[in-house]
């Protein structure tokens, strides 16, 4: 009996990510959700710009590669063109919370029936380790070499907290992938975010607190610890909004 195998919705293409990068785990969780819901044939994914730009090579579903930050707008177009399709975006923190903030906020405000997987690792990976909108106060990056100074570089954007103020946002949860327990919770959240869409409920966004061993300058193991000790206190895990559950309870 097979206890664990690669999900069907992942292609055989070797992932280009750095050793220990948790993008691979998150890809797998998305693919598992697609498999479990049996929606592989009618799912369309939108890849971002950033490390996960080549996500289009890793999922067996039809994929569109969007301009930096515009994935929620492209997803809106795809979904409006054919509401029977299941449409998800996969975006990093620079893509979603910096250049694409406007598209993110308004897709949520419209209650667009799409699923957004938001990977927050507090740094720009693809371009080599610059400050992200989610970089922590004091965090050293290539463009905050003396540590992020909130007096001049401002505070991190807490996406789930921010979007939870919008009436259109349906389901917002922050999860992490730094240990087996958190990964199992992340899996549940991602599955639910897709299921919400299948059931026609509306906008779901899962923020996945993730690592970047290479640009954090840490080993993959140490990066998991850094996530736990530094990211999670600033970005507490949990459900920030579940309008659908609230509506069901009424």
């Amino acid at each position: 009996m097979t206890v664990f195998d690669k999900p069907k919705s992942l292609t055989d293409a070797p992932l280009h990510y750095c050793p220990g990068c948790t993008h691979g785990i998150i890809h797998r969780l998305v693919a598992e959700a697609i498999d479990e819901l049996g929606i592989e044939g009618r799912t369309i994914g939108i890849a971002p710009v950033g490390c996960s730009v080549m996500a289009y090579n890793y999922f067996t579903v039809d994929m569109v590669q969007a301009a930096h930050g515009r994935a929620p707008a492209v997803a809106t177009g795809v979904k409006r063109a054919d509401p029977s399709k299941i449409v998800f975006t996969y975006q990093g923190d620079g893509d979603l919370a910096s250049i694409g903030t406007c598209e993110t906020v308004h897709a949520a405000a419209r209650g667009e029936n799409i699923t957004i997987i938001f990977v927050n690792n507090a740094i720009y990976g693809m371009t080599g380790g610059q400050m992200a909108p989610t970089s922590l106060p004091g965090q050293i990056t290539q463009t905050s070499p003396y540590g992020r100074d909130v007096a001049t570089q401002g505070y991190p954007v807490k996406v789930c907290e921010m979007l939870s103020q919008l009436d259109g946002a349906g389901y917002l949860e922050r999860v992490a992938v730094n240990n087996v327990k958190n990964i199992k919770n992340a899996k549940k959240a991602i599955l639910k975010a897709f299921k919400n869409q299948v059931e026609g409920k509306g906008f779901s966004l899962i923020e996945v607190v993730s690592t970047c061993p290479t640009n954090w300058g840490l080993t993959p193991e140490k990066a998991l610890e850094w996530l736990n000790d530094n990211m999670l206190p600033y970005y507490p895990l949990g459900v920030y909004k579940d309008k659908f559950a609230e509506e069901a309870a009424k």
Binding site: I25, H27, I183
Partner: peptide
């Protein structure tokens, strides 16, 4: 579960 590259069956 932890393997980012999905190489374990």
């Amino acid at each position: 579960t932890m393997c980012p590259d999905c190489i374990i069956t």
